[in-house]
Simulated scan of single mutants.
Amino acid sequence: MALITQKMDITFSLRRKEVVEMQPLVKEMQLRWPALFLKEQICAEFSRITTKDLMGTFMTALDTYSLWLIKLYRVRTAAFRNDMDSLLQKFDEQVSNIVQHRRTISLEGLPIFVRDDETKLFLTCLDTDPVERATRGVTVGILTVLEDYVGSNSQSTVINTAIVLEEDIILDDLPDLPTAFAYLFGLLYGLNMEFPKELKYTFEAVQHIFMELTSTCSQRIRSFKTKLLTKV
């Protein structure tokens, strides 16, 4: 792994020039730079570009804000579709691993709160369904694969969490949705991909508030940040 990192360090400027100027498809980048899609190299590439620790910065920010995000969601529930109610009810039903569930609900509620289309980002399918059906037309997404069986607790078991880019699964067998979200954000930077229009405020919130990578933001995210920081 040290040798791979060394080679990726040496070829960084060449790779960035290719990514920025040629804007290749993700499949082309997988063929040209397969190491770029390794978990360690996603983090390393993000650090090369931003000088920030991808996983450390993201998870620390998520833990800092998650409790207050959920409180904001509860206060403003009436302003949103029933999706927010369902999300919070799912959280309230949890009796174990509350910190992890809080992280997940914070992220799942974010696009709803900033009025993006969360169905374009968070995808689900059963393990008996064709994966191609779930990824069709998806530019950027996180796919949660559920076991096609519901026991007495009426909750499906998550058997896989994967990142989807340009209709293909790029990285799978991830431990949870927050981890997948962090790697997805890192890949968007590493591949110089624009935030999808229907999810631009979600990723802008992460970029500006969680990761502190920009000094300016849209009015919508500025308002969201003000609401959030008055709670923290």
Rank of each mutant, 00 (worst) to 15 (best):
R16A: 08
M29S: 09
L110T: 11
P24N: 03
G190K: 00
T139W: 10
K200C: 10
V232H: 02
M1F: 06
T214L: 05
F12W: 13
A180P: 02
G190E: 00
M22Q: 15
F195A: 05
F58I: 04
V138A: 04
T179E: 07
S156W: 03
P196V: 01
T5L: 13
T157V: 11
D63S: 07
T11M: 14
F80A: 02
N82R: 09
F37R: 03
C43W: 00
F210I: 07
F113I: 13
V145C: 10
L38E: 09
A205P: 07
T135R: 08
A78F: 01
Y189N: 03
T202N: 05
L143A: 06
S86F: 12
V131S: 01
M55Y: 04
D129W: 07
D85V: 04
S154L: 14
L14K: 15
L191I: 02
I4E: 11
F46W: 02
M29H: 02
L67K: 14
V19F: 08
T202M: 01
K39N: 01
I98Y: 07
V206W: 03
A134D: 10
D176W: 08
R81P: 03
K200F: 04
L31T: 14
Q155H: 08
V75W: 08
R103H: 15
Q89C: 12
E198V: 10
L213A: 05
I4Y: 07
P130N: 06
M59N: 11
I163G: 03
T226M: 11
V75D: 12
D176Q: 00
R222P: 00
I10F: 07
H208A: 05
S223M: 12
L184T: 04
P24A: 04
F12R: 14
A134F: 09
R74D: 00
E21N: 15
K197A: 06
L174R: 08
T5H: 12
R81D: 11
I98E: 04
N192G: 05
K52S: 04
S223E: 13
T5E: 12
F46N: 00
V26R: 10
E108I: 15
K225Q: 09
E132H: 12
R76M: 12
V95L: 10
L54I: 06
T202G: 02
T5C: 06
L143N: 10
